[in-house]
Design a binder for these strands. Structure first.
Lengths: 184, 184
DNA sequence: GCACGGCGGGAACGAACGTTCTGTCTATAA
DNA sequence: TTATAGACAGAACGTTCGTTCCCGCCGTGC
């Protein structure tokens, strides 16, 4: 239950849910405090402003994804890590309630590249690219930089495509294209 | 000059510019009528509501892209149409002022798939996929459906990646991956 | 026992939102 | 010449925005 968590956690949980499902600008502070069962005063006691909650939401999502990838890496042999990532992306894209990439969606609402929200987006993307490059290296891929760039490209395209078109078809295309490109 | 165009055209031009550069929700009607040098009454005489202007903006963008693709198809032999599309996408992504895909960005701000804005997005994406499938067919590609799906995937990934990462690197990755995947 | 900090309830702030209105001016068409 | 329609100017609508404040309650630690 979220109702017996701390006010800060309730806030972050409902923000994560609402920001992702309905967008950031369209979800007001009213909505947030009402659904989190928290008062405005409590909101501003934990977050200096709404955009700080947005950053916290992205950072929490980032941490969740880092954990998922780390767990995946631990449980799959080095040679199968890249296809495993593709499977993971494909499954995420087909999950119910999927609404595209958290970070791409957030960036679309914050055009200024210097904004703190964009900083959070950049950090996540930097980590993902580096993580993919390292996986490719460990898998013995001849060109890890290219492999990472390809994985980022396919990742982004698949996540946005799955939201806007048929997720299952996108998933199939992603897997087939990934295997073709990465030589696996 | 936009200042001697009709009020409706001025409105659509400034809306296209502002919506793309700064986002849709963040640009208010105040901003629009001020920069278009048009009064509120004139605004609402031409568009029942702001979201109708958003739809008009997307439809105008859609028409521009259809024209660009049609022109490209006319001037390139059938066999080279697919790489030409990739070049076009890559160049667009590296153009100054590029801010990602108009339609993906708009969809990120309108989560409801039944919204009229999303309808405009769906129409554009449907056209693009069909156009790519037809190009692939005419180029003699053995699996036009897959080729079209791949082009959509790479297109989406490249456009969002170029906005968030290094556009030149994304362009190179796009071209190389496209050539590898489409056998060209 | 008492001070203190976290939280709930709720009013209030100024600003901006999308939208509607009244009224005046001017160009075009009957 | 007059009627009409479109664009102008600008005030105003009610609502919502993000943010701040005051007050009373209650649990914990000194």
């Amino acid at each position: 239950m979220t109702s017996d968590a701390s006010p800060r956690d309730r806030l972050l949980d409902t923000a994560s849910d609402l920001f992702y499902r309905e967008g950031i600008h369209t979800v007001g502070v009213d909505r947030l405090v009402t659904e989190a069962k928290v008062t405005r005063a409590t909101f501003y006691r934990h977050f200096p402003a709404k955009e700080d909650l947005v950053v916290a939401y992205l950072r929490a999502t980032d941490q969740r994804l880092r954990g998922a990838v780390a767990r995946m890496v631990e449980t799959t042999p080095a040679g199968e890590a890249l296809p495993a990532v593709l499977e993971f992306v494909g499954e995420s894209a087909c999950a119910s309630g999927f609404r595209g990439c958290h970070f791409i969606n957030a960036a679309a609402e914050y055009p200024d590249p210097e904004h703190i929200v964009r900083n959070a987006v950049d950090e996540h993307r930097g980590w993902f690219r580096d993580a993919m490059a390292e996986l490719a290296t460990r898998a013995g891929h001849p060109d890890p930089g290219y492999a990472a760039a390809v994985l980022v490209l396919l990742h982004d395209g698949a996540l946005q495509g799955a939201e806007l078109d048929d997720p299952e078809q996108v998933r199939r295309t992603l897997l087939r294209a990934g295997r073709d490109l990465l030589g696996i």
